[in-house]
């Protein structure tokens, strides 16, 4: 007797809708509305007294680790960071509430984007039970109220497919470009200097950085990096110089993050725990610059 074993991905995903992705009106609408979902100010200067930029990085790194470990959809982490930034741009918050806030934002983003979302209990365990599920649910309402229930924010991920389909790239390379671009987007979300950038610019810069990074391995590139930047800028109506600056910043953050990671690896005195807290998304660790 033969046994048949079928392993199916237990997570249900909608297929990519070509009617949406191949219609320029969708891209134009995304470009039109994206700025509405940006945080309203650089809140470290004008709103927050207790919270410092390094604390945002700490909570962001933790959120990214949780999202990676829980195999969340790629959009969940940047979306959660968008909620966090928008909340902090309006509400002075003590640092003791920051991790709770991060958990609430992941909770909401996961519910919006995933078919079987993160549970409150699980998120509380990740805070080492420093918060209770009840508190998480209470603050969920507070965050919803302060965000005016506008959760369907535009994220850089919304632009990736629109950009990719307009590039003269071979099909077989697309999935790698997509994967690297997604990783760069996550990296940008951990760094506050990208928090006020329009998502389309982060997406365009990430795709540019991904392609340029991958082309270095090859002898013949189909497009020079400058020509590529110009093409990308046209696709999302971004200013070429802004885009170049953004892409350079992404590459700098990546390099910094990689050096940090390698330094930690070389540094034998660091425990494994500390290594895993390095702010490098695991996918980028394989990238060679």
């Amino acid at each position: 007797m033969e046994l048949l074993c079928c392993e199916v991905d237990p997570i249900r995903r909608a297929v990519r809708d070509r009617n949406l992705l191949q219609d320029d009106r969708v891209l134009q609408n995304l470009l039109t509305i994206e700025e509405r979902y940006l945080p309203q100010c650089s809140y470290f200067k004008c709103v927050q007294k207790d919270i410092q930029p390094y604390m945002r990085r700490m909570v962001a790194t933790w959120m990214l680790e949780v999202c990676e470990e829980q195999k969340c959809e790629e959009e969940v982490f940047p979306l959660a960071m968008n909620y966090l930034d928008r909340f902090l741009a309006g509400v002075p918050t003590p640092k003791s509430h920051l991790q709770l806030l991060g958990a609430v934002c992941m909770f909401l983003a996961s519910k919006l984007k995933e078919t079987s979302p993160l549970t409150a209990e699980k998120l509380c365990i990740y805070t080492d039970n420093s918060i209770k599920p009840q508190e998480l649910l209470e603050w969920e309402l507070v965050v919803l109220g302060k965000l005016k229930w506008n959760l369907a924010a535009v994220t850089p991920h919304d632009f990736i497919e629109h950009i990719l389909r307009k590039l003269p790239q071979q099909r077989e390379k697309l999935s790698l470009i997509r994967k690297h671009a997604q990783t760069f987007i996550a990296l940008c979300a951990t760094d506050f200097k990208f928090a006020m950038y329009p998502p389309s610019m982060i997406a365009t810069g990430s795709v540019g950085a991904a392609i340029c990074g991958l082309q270095q391995d090859e002898e013949v590139s189909s497009l020079t990096c400058d020509a590529l930047t110009e093409l990308l800028a046209k696709i999302t109506n971004t200013d070429v110089d802004c885009l170049k600056a953004c892409q350079e910043q992404i590459e700098a953050v990546l390099l910094n993050s990689l050096q940090q990671y390698r330094q930690d690896q070389r540094d034998g005195s660091k425990s494994e725990d500390e290594l895993d807290q390095a702010s490098t998304p695991t996918d980028v660790r394989d990238i060679d610059l």
Binding site: V66, E69, S96, S116, K122, I125, Y126, D128, S130, Q277
Partner: peptide, 21 residues
């Protein structure tokens, strides 16, 4: 639920000290 159990995860940590309920 296919997601990993966080109980023994390294990401399990309290970032900014005890929280005042």
């Amino acid at each position: 639920d296919v997601r990993p159990n966080p109980s023994s995860s390294k990401a399990r940590r309290c970032l900014f000290g005890p929280v005042d309920s």
